[in-house]
């Protein structure tokens, strides 16, 4: 969908942009590698949540990690890299994206 570009008089003064605009920018379609979340292995250390550059780690109302927000996850793999779980019981694994 084409976004209408604003004229200069419509812009905020001082080269400023209001916060939270990244929500409008769906980076999920950049993904070539996809993280898969395995709830049974998760120890809720929040490493993935803290490291994710796109705030794409989903938490439930009890603040437990429940999955990945694929609308924003761009498949960088940082969550998999930082996840401290053992090799045979990984909470996050990466697989090739199939669209």
């Amino acid at each position: 969908m084409a976004i209408k570009k604003m004229g200069w008089k419509e812009l905020m003064p001082g080269d400023a942009i209001s916060g939270g605009t990244a929500a409008e920018f769906e980076t999920g379609d950049w993904r070539s590698e996809k993280p898969i979340f395995h709830k049974e292995n998760c120890i809720n250390c929040y490493f993935c949540w803290a490291y994710c550059p796109d705030s794409a780690i989903l938490l439930d109302e009890n603040k437990k990690v429940v999955g990945i927000d694929y609308k924003y996850c761009k498949g960088c793999g940082i969550c998999d890299r930082e996840c401290p779980t053992k090799k045979e019981k990984r909470a996050i694994t990466m697989e090739t994206e199939r669209k």
């Binding site: 905020m12 001082g14 080269d15 400023a16 942009i17 209001s18 916060g19 939270g20 605009t21």
Partner: peptide
């Protein structure tokens, strides 16, 4: 209260 970015 009014988060913003300047100089993008």
């Amino acid at each position: 209260g009014k988060p913003l970015t300047m100089g993008c």
